[in-house]
Design a protein around this nucleic acid. Sequence first.
DNA 1: ATACAACTGTTGTATGTACAATATATAAAA
DNA 2: TTTTATATATTGTACATACAACAGTTGTAT
Lengths: 150, 150
Amino acid sequence: MSIETILKIKSPISQAKRTVVQILYAGEFFRDQLNGRLKPFNLTSQQYNVLRILRGQKGNPATLSIIQERMINKNSNTTRLIDKLVDKKLVSRKVDLENRRKLKITITKKGLKTLLNIDPKVDDFESKATYNLTNKELKNLNKLLDKLIF
Amino acid sequence: MSIETILKIKSPISQAKRTVVQILYAGEFFRDQLNGRLKPFNLTSQQYNVLRILRGQKGNPATLSIIQERMINKNSNTTRLIDKLVDKKLVSRKVDLENRRKLKITITKKGLKTLLNIDPKVDDFESKATYNLTNKELKNLNKLLDKLIF
DNA sequence: ATACAACTGTTGTATGTACAATATATAAAA
DNA sequence: TTTTATATATTGTACATACAACAGTTGTAT
């Protein structure tokens, strides 16, 4: 099904405009899908993203700014996002005594356990989302997307 | 610059995961870029999207549900979104006397004029965003994105 | 040592998003 | 005709996003 059919676009559009619309649409769609799968765990896609980043630190604490630069959505209010995760005891936060401007943020055992439960749901989404494409096509798509994100 | 570099991803990931991350990232990036360009006009990308849909109606009034199904982001609260546009006098809204459940929503002259001012800014973004790709690559990318959006 | 600049994070506020509950109008069924 | 179902839009509420202003901490230059 083409984006024109989905959005009932009647007039022909340029390839560039089509790409922009498709990326915007696919981005929203993917985010909604992910949020739906994360809802039973009471997490948003941004919160999940942060947990993933912290797991990737393999024990090393991260600061707010490190988290921020690695987040898919840079516009989140990371302070308040971390607040939520701390409330849920998925993340711990303390001031860095070496440099009291910084925070030392780590994922807790409960956070890691939660991620283990979520992983298969996300994997499932990823494989469903890319089901129509062969691995070769995916590689090709990724190469083109690399070029798009300058 | 690869998505791994941008997001400082260290471990290798599958092509499927890479596609999902790239789409999510590109979607957020595009939306932010668009919002930035729309800000001087005091519009969000969703509001702009609605104005575009209404212009596409070529005079025919649209109902809320028509607008909703054509919007890139289906989750918007369309009632309140239209409220804003009506407040700004970019859109007019009246109940359909044939079927009083429905609304007749049209873009005003001021709305059309605003769009004409915005068009070049958006065109500029679209061409910058796709600058690194040839037209052939864009076509190819769009074909792959078609397959992705099932 | 003091002043100034840069870094890091927090808070305030307006707006947008998500989603369920509700209201009202029309259509269909009994 | 009355009841029930469906269509269409609105409202309420909790939460998230955007972004500017602020505050405290450390680094640098004089």
